[in-house]
Structures are given as structure tokens and as C-alpha cells.
């Protein structure tokens, strides 16, 4: 298939425009990625009475060991092997740091203010300014 020079130019210019509009950072924040885990693990990982384990307050090493083993296929999994393959080491570490700072108690018993402080502490631990 031959591509016309004009088409190539238009594609290049629109790609540049797109890149320019979003000078994209290298990585999502730990908090933004951690929020994505809530539908299974509870709001901010604070679900303590289900089959899927709580992530709030989990030691960083425990989180990293589990996720790396899921990703490398050395730990039996139902779906977590698939999920883990979506993240780099740095991303997993940012999430681990953030979750470690969330309170070890059910979401229903956590006030908004308490959570906002914990989320801020998590972002700082992950090396992100808030």
C-alpha cells in the first residue's frame, strides 16, 4: 500500500499536536493506579471481610513479592497474574507505598478527613507531591 506524502504529513502533524497537548509524564501516580483496585479490594483497599484480600496497610515488601510472583507466573492465580502483567516494577512500588499508608479498618468506619490525610501520606510515600 502506498501512503501519500500529504497523508503522512497530516498524520505527523496531528500526532505532534496530540503529543504537545499532553506532555505526558512517564508514570501514573501510585494513588491513581491504586484507586483502580477498589472494585475488588474495597475503597482504598479497605475491605476486610471478603475473599479478595485487603491491601490497606499491607507492608510494601508483601505487596511487591505477591505482585512480582503473580507477574512472573510463580504464584497460582485466578486473575491476578493478568492484572500484574499490566504494571512495571516502578508502578508496583508506587502502589505498594501508597497502600501501606492506608488505615487498617473498614471503609465504612473511616471518615473522609481521615482518608484524605492517609491518601496524602500515601502520595508522599510514593514520592509524589500533593
Amino acid at each position: 500500500m502506498q501512503t501519500s506524502p500529504l497523508k503522512t504529513l497530516i498524520a505527523a502533524v496531528s500526532l505532534m499536536a496530540a503529543t504537545h497537548a499532553h506532555a505526558e509524564p512517564q508514570m501514573a501516580t501510585g494513588q491513581a493506579m491504586a484507586w483502580q483496585c477498589a472494585p475488588c479490594h474495597g475503597v482504598n483497599g479497605q475491605e476486610f471481610s471478603e475473599a479478595m484480600p485487603p491491601l490497606a496497610g499491607m507492608p510494601v515488601k508483601q505487596f511487591m513479592d505477591a505482585m512480582l510472583a503473580y507477574r512472573e507466573g510463580t504464584r497460582p492465580a485466578v486473575i491476578m497474574d493478568r492484572v500484574a502483567r499490566g504494571f512495571t516494577d516502578e508502578e508496583l512500588n508506587a502502589m505498594a507505598q501508597w497502600f501501606a499508608k492506608q488505615p487498617i479498618k473498614p471503609w465504612e468506619q473511616t471518615t473522609l478527613q481521615e482518608s484524605l490525610s492517609a491518601q496524602q501520606a500515601g502520595a508522599q510515600a510514593a514520592g509524589e507531591k500533593q
Partner: peptide, 30 residues
């Protein structure tokens, strides 16, 4: 503030019977 990178997720569990689940999952980026 500058925008941060966008990462999305989807997990769909379905039941093929009351005690038989099937799933599809992915993490997404732009």
C-alpha cells in the same frame, strides 16, 4: 496542575452457572 498519566482497568466476571465463573481482565493506557 499538570496532568498525570492515565491508567485504566477493567475486570468483567460473568457466571456461566451459579457456581461457574469466567472472566476477562486488562489494564489500559493511551
Amino acid at each position: 496542575r499538570p496532568l498525570t498519566k492515565s491508567v485504566y482497568a477493567n475486570v468483567c466476571y460473568s457466571l456461566a452457572g451459579d457456581n461457574y465463573g469466567v472472566s476477562i481482565a486488562a489494564i489500559y493506557e493511551v
